[in-house]
Design a protein around this nucleic acid. Structure first.
Lengths: 261, 261
DNA sequence: AACGGTCGGTTTATTATATGAACCGATGGT
DNA sequence: ACCATCGGTTCATATAATAAACCGACCGTT
């Protein structure tokens, strides 16, 4: 593996749960020699991608990221464009809506919007990576990736997260085919036992599926009528966001979503 | 120089003016061999820090930056916290307000807020780096950096940007000392000939000066009374933002700003 | 106050990795 | 038909990354 990749992997070690990491910890987490890790962090710090804080000299993500992200958003307003659609989606469905992006082969939550309709809501504050096989977003994205990518994912060991998690590659392949033929994905407690969710894929200006938008609700609130509302709202939100991104929906999706309306 | 630094420098080549860069261009700009540049870009792309777009296969900043920046803001709400203060500042002074951060030894504009009071306004949409010697923000920041850093900056060749740009290191040293004793900095047409600006330093939770907030106006609108308003508003905004950042003002600044009120 | 363990950081010889010139097929303008 | 340039690849060479051992500082225990 290249040295640059090793450095960039360090950035991915920072999570909402552990935003500050010491040198030795980081070396352990990354499986690197402490000296190597130190050099990499120093170079990252020199450019402001990480910074050191406090007397313990721990590292955290740096201010340069703000600038670079702003520059990216100025050219491709991914987050900014999706935010209002997501909020409307949460409002309309009275549940939690969230959008995830495919980044470096992993599915990462980017924005979420909550509804104030219920006292209990699904939260995903500390979630950094979504498992493809156990979430509706994951299945929605997987259904529209090249075969090679899908097979790579299914070839890995897929953790059983709840009693309902499907982990058999064959069954998953079938479910993914079903997602393609329905135009949306659904997960019933596969990620967290009480949470049901539905998701649709999103397409960017490059023509590929680069993310998904989903609505997650307590399983107990998922009536058949509510599922219809969520499904319809998702398809509408998916169309809007894809359009705002300058992307276009595959023609079969257009047909499916039109029929569902 | 380390390989990682070379890769990170590539990220800094993207600007508002040229957000898409081809492989050969990038190699030229970075002074790298094309093959080397290709490898570095490939590694960056693998992690989503850049992505390739269109038939020309040009590169642009990638979606991973959004995620990392969001993670950073979640821990240290730098931009989010400053935004409303900046907007109020623009409103109150009826001019353009902007905030810059010290990143990797360079002064980078992060947010700006415009007032709708005048038909003509100072814009800085395409500005990626501010020169220390020719802007009020630069002088404000420089005044509160370690001597070594200040001398490094002054030792460089300082470009004369307008007829009014001060480029003599000795004179600049004196002006910087004056900034320290006044608690604010001012630039009259040193960056763009018709633009006058004033700025105050900002301090973060680590105790250092990590940026500045400034108000820029057309020189023709800079009455003595307006300058008083701007100066006072800046000091107030500087106090607020520094507090929101969890920082604290040096005691001499507190005194100076209190006297000015 | 002496101890053992950990911290962040530095040094060094060793070796793996980055490098650059030349080359490739494709593309586009003259 | 031509030439220049594009993005990308190859491979021998040389440079830059690596890992172990070490350093002083710090911290809670004994």
């Amino acid at each position: 593996m290249g040295t640059v990749s090793k450095a960039l992997e360090l950035l991915d070690l920072f999570t909402r749960a552990s935003p500050l990491i010491g040198l030795s910890d980081m070396a352990r987490l990354a499986g690197l020699n402490k000296a190597t890790c130190f050099r990499l962090l120093s170079e990252l710090a020199e450019h402001g991608l990480v910074e050191q804080v406090g007397t313990a000299r721990e590292y955290r993500l740096g201010p340069a990221l703000l600038r670079l992200a702003a520059l990216r958003e100025a050219q491709v307003p991914t987050r900014e464009a999706a935010m209002p659609v997501l909020q409307a989606l949460a409002q309309r469905t009275s549940e939690t809506a969230h959008l995830s992006l495919l980044i470096g082969g992993q599915l990462r939550p980017l924005v979420h919007a909550y509804s104030s309709a219920h006292a209990t809501r699904v939260t995903l504050d500390d979630t950094d990576t979504l498992p493809f096989h156990a979430t509706s977003s994951g299945l929605a994205v997987l259904a529209f990736q090249p075969d090679a990518f899908r097979e790579t994912v299914l070839a890995q060991t897929l953790p059983r997260l709840t009693r309902s998690t499907e982990t058999d590659p064959g069954t998953l392949r079938a479910r993914i085919a079903e997602v393609r033929s329905l135009g949306y994905a659904e997960s019933r407690g596969g990620y967290e036992s009480d949470v049901h969710s539905m998701a649709v894929p999103l397409f960017d200006a490059l023509g590929g599926c680069s993310g998904a938008v989903a609505v997650a609700a307590l399983g107990s609130r998922m009536s058949e009528q509510q599922r219809r509302l969520i499904r319809y709202s998702l398809m509408q939100a998916g169309t809007e966001i894809t359009t705002l991104w300058g992307g276009s929906l595959p023609s079969d999706i257009v047909t499916l979503w039109r029929l569902a309306a």
